[in-house]
Design a protein around this nucleic acid. Structure first.
Lengths: 326, 326
DNA sequence: TTGTAGGCGTTATCAC
DNA sequence: GTGATAACGCCTACAA
């Protein structure tokens, strides 16, 4: 390993001087600078981030905590975060929490032990001590808590939208899939949809699901048609659930969207490639990831941040699992 | 921040002793141990990984480089890696390379600057100097190079399988999608399929695709049916391409699998939820990720590693985009 | 069995 | 302008 000392030796100066030139801090004569730069080049010297981190008590590392990268919604978020962080030379320590508090706390712990300068977390437990006592900035992604920095989308409005569009397209016996109880955004959507359906006065059913996994999506879909065979409109808890529902509906020989309409949530990339393509409530996940990263960077660099709570609008994406209206 | 010094003070011993108990190295009296442990508890002391890393010149960090986490094949791999690493208390610094050599090299560079103890990389450039000169173990994932440690699946056999199954089910005018030229596994599959088709003596067509993105998948699918309208069997370069092809086929009113059969590659989680569900060549991606992590851990811990080149078998998953045979 | 002290690679303070 | 040097928090000879 080539150290600052090696560079200093080769350039015939002290380590202090080398440090000055690589950090562009303090005065240094043009000639010496040249000598140093040349030595840096020849030796291909790259400063040891660990030593830097130790001295400065801060690294260029960011902790990113997501429930499960295997859920197609999250890669978009992750990618948005990464791209933005990359631009400012921050690196990501990444972990899956499985919505498990303990796992999450353990990760936060090791983030700290590694001197990360900020955390982006998609957590169900934002009001835990661990977060509240953190001395570094945290941005909650896809989750909120009071006026803590956060980036999220308007789940409730999304739920409302889904229900409205479904009603506007003539479904009369709607079934709503209620996502996992401990996942806030899932409940927001659910509430939004319920609100609109209550206002409408029409009957509706509810199917509870306990996770966002592929496996559970399939069984929930089966359960749904088994219990509520007469349903003519399904508001799914996310696009995976919707895909499973669509799959099951077609398997049962139902016509989509003529006999059953389906609306998903998220707009994951595959949704438009389904057949029929999936109508859904879109969250701009990539942009949300980017924005979360952006917000965190501002927080880290102590820039004045006008708005620490960034809500993204959701949007109905009309495709082929819903009927057309004039 | 609470340091080892604080613990030492509270316990009334020297830092050396504290170090000994937390690392379980060297002798320490039962009583002193108790005092120290109690102090550690009360102060909630967690050793600073950065300081450790600096001294020992190695961290508990692993670099993970994937082309694009947004491609549904990779989250599985990533998850497998993470789960295994987690078990041994390793953390992941994660980056997307976009199959871009420069980006990749930059990442490797910062991995080193952060004292990572190993790298798992899904690269198209395993024979680059940067990799060859690395002084830490590297495991190539989904890629190979000579006898460098690697975990991959048998792409060529996968391609052969796809072609064989398609022929066995009666397709006579097959079109093969050739994945991106610079991506090795894509070419292996392609070659395998070509081999079998050549042996069969039947005519076939080729569609070249330049990326694995969702967007390109759609346009390739359109191009395919435009150019080779009479095709009755499509071997897609991966499941996304297959999904796009299926989508387009149905849009054109073709009966799947009666008029056109489709076989994908990878078996991403959504494939079984498509309608009709997608027949595909399965790679056990989660297991591959785990195994790569496992191999890397062995390499790091200098265990004798029997086999550094782990090839996973692929497997035809029969679903509904192919016809049934007796 | 325990403590002292030097060093890991870097930065920043303070003389010169 | 430049160079010693003391930190940063931890680990490990070596001495006691």
């Amino acid at each position: 390993m080539v150290t600052i000392k090696d560079v200093a030796n080769m350039a015939g100066v002290s380590v202090a001087t080398v440090s000055r030139v690589i950090n562009e801090t303090g005065y240094v004569h043009a000639d010496t600078r040249k000598k140093v730069e040349s030595a840096v080049q020849q030796l291909n010297f790259k400063p040891n981030e660990v030593a830097r981190s130790l001295y400065k008590r801060k690294s260029r590392l960011i902790g990113l905590l997501l429930p499960d990268i295997t859920n197609p919604y999250f890669p978009q978020l992750a990618r948005g975060v990464e791209d933005r962080m990359q631009e400012n030379d921050f690196r990501l320590i990444f972990g899956n929490s499985d919505e498990n508090k303990q796992k999450e706390m353990d990760y936060i712990q090791t983030f700290i032990q590694n001197n990360v300068v900020g955390v982006i977390s998609s957590t169900n437990y934002p009001d835990t001590d661990t977060y509240l006592k953190l001395k570094i900035p945290v941005v909650f992604l896809d989750r909120t808590l009071g006026d803590s920095p956060s980036v999220y989308s308007d789940g409730r409005e999304g739920g409302r939208l889904a229900a409205q569009e479904m009603l506007a397209r003539g479904s009369k016996r709607i079934t709503i899939m209620q996502g996992p109880a401990h996942i806030r955004p899932a409940q927001d959507r659910f509430q939004g949809a319920i609100e609109v359906l209550e206002e409408s006065g029409l009957p509706y059913h509810i199917i509870r699901t306990s996770s966002f996994s592929f496996h559970d999506a399939e069984s929930s879909a089966k359960e749904l048609f088994h219990k509520y065979a007469g349903t003519d409109g399904i508001i799914a808890s996310n696009d995976i659930a919707a895909t499973a529902v669509l799959h099951e509906a077609l398997r049962l020989g139902l016509k989509v969207p003529d006999e059953v309409q389906i609306i998903g949530f998220d707009d994951i990339p595959l949704s438009r490639l389904l057949s029929p393509s999936l109508s859904t409530i879109r969250q701009p996940s990539y942009e949300m990831g980017r924005e979360a990263a952006n917000l965190l960077i501002q927080l880290i660099e102590q820039t004045n941040v006008a708005n620490k709570n960034i809500q993204f609008p959701v949007q109905f994406v009309e495709r082929d699992t819903t009927r057309k209206v004039d």
